[in-house]
Amino acid sequence: MAGVESAGLTDVGKKRKGNEDAFFTDDNLKLYVVADGMGGHLAGEVASDLVVRTIRDYMERFDSEAEVEELEDADKTLSKDANRLIAGINLANRVVYGASHRKSAYRGMGATVSAVYFSEETLIASNVGDSPIYLIRKGEIETLSVPHTVVAEQMALNPGKKFGKEYSHMLTRAMGVEERVLADICEIQCFKDDILVIASDGLTNKVRPDEIAGVVVGKRPAKSSQILVDMANERGGEDNITVIVLKVKNVHRKRRGILGMISRLFRIG
């Protein structure tokens, strides 16, 4: 099991009147979630809060000694812990979808979600939407999440095609928009000194991945979180800004040898 130090921060930015982002961090539960809401008056704020609280409450049940019934929609290609995270995301999607159909003021609301969860042996990253999850390992940064946007998906099919700015944040998947949602997920081995960053696009629209890596390496998560939010605000702060920075302080593995070093990677979607 990994020992983790984390810090999270959310800021309304310089242009918005309200904050539609929400986040959750728990170093004991080893769960970290960012949600970026969208919708009409207050609806985005409601959606992101529902997403975060639902996933938190669902995953907390497995941290108790009480027996918890697993949800039926398990994917046999995924580990037990990865299935639990996916189940929490699916449940949150249904909660937001149901709320949006019960109250007219919430009609059409939704959110992105990006979550990291540590099992006994691995780290699991899952997302719906375009809020990125970065892994910084030995100074190099890579993206663990999959952007569910028109531009990203079309560029994968036709790399040379150009798109206007109006398509840059057009989502192809979001929480609560449909009754069912398909999340992307990956599960890999974690190592001491790995750093993960989960952010809303209010940060990543203003701060490049290489800049993020430069900030978080060598600093405590609380300090680097504040620096990143300040950078986004200094560069305009047009959107809400949310970031979680977490650092793996140590890893205690149950398994040893070659089998214990194998990384697993799964993608859905």
Rank of each mutant, 00 (worst) to 15 (best):
V177T: 10
G88N: 06
A105G: 02
K206T: 07
R220G: 11
P132C: 04
G37S: 09
R267H: 13
R173K: 14
D57N: 15
N19E: 02
D210I: 06
G39H: 08
E20W: 03
E65C: 00
L246K: 01
L157K: 15
R220A: 13
Y32N: 00
E60T: 09
G160I: 00
T10L: 10
N83Y: 02
R173T: 06
R208K: 15
A43Q: 00
V34C: 00
T242H: 13
A213C: 09
A152F: 08
I268D: 13
V151E: 09
D194I: 01
D63F: 13
Y58R: 07
K103T: 14
R264E: 14
T112P: 03
L50W: 03
E142S: 15
I258N: 04
A111V: 04
K219P: 07
E179A: 15
A111F: 06
D239K: 00
V34R: 04
G176V: 01
F266Y: 11
M261S: 15
D75Y: 13
M231Y: 11
R56C: 11
V116A: 11
S119A: 11
G39M: 05
L157M: 11
V34Y: 02
R107Y: 10
D194A: 02
D210W: 08
V151Q: 12
L171R: 08
L123M: 14
M261W: 12
L157F: 01
E178P: 00
E5G: 02
I227Q: 05
M175W: 01
E70F: 07
S168C: 10
G260M: 07
A183S: 14
G236T: 02
A74I: 04
S6K: 03
C190F: 12
L71N: 04
T204Q: 08
A156C: 03
E121K: 14
G40E: 03
V215N: 08
E166V: 12
G13P: 10
K206N: 13
H148T: 11
S6C: 09
A74H: 05
K192P: 02
G218Y: 11
G202F: 02
I55W: 07
E238Y: 11
Y117S: 01
A213I: 03
L29A: 10
L85I: 04
G129M: 11
V52A: 06
P159W: 11
N205T: 01
M261D: 13
N28Y: 09
R61N: 05
R255S: 12
V229L: 10
V116Q: 05
I241R: 00
G37F: 04
A22D: 05
D81V: 13
P147W: 00
D49M: 04
M261I: 03
I227W: 08
E140L: 13
V243G: 03
I188T: 07
R235M: 15
I227F: 13
L85F: 08
I124N: 02
L259N: 08
D75Q: 01
I227P: 03
G37K: 03
G236P: 10
L157D: 10
T149H: 07
I136W: 04
H101D: 05
G44T: 00
G98K: 15
K17R: 15
A47Q: 08
R255F: 12
L9P: 04
A22H: 07
K17N: 14
G98R: 15
F163S: 07
K15T: 04
V128I: 14
V216G: 02
V52Y: 02
I241A: 02
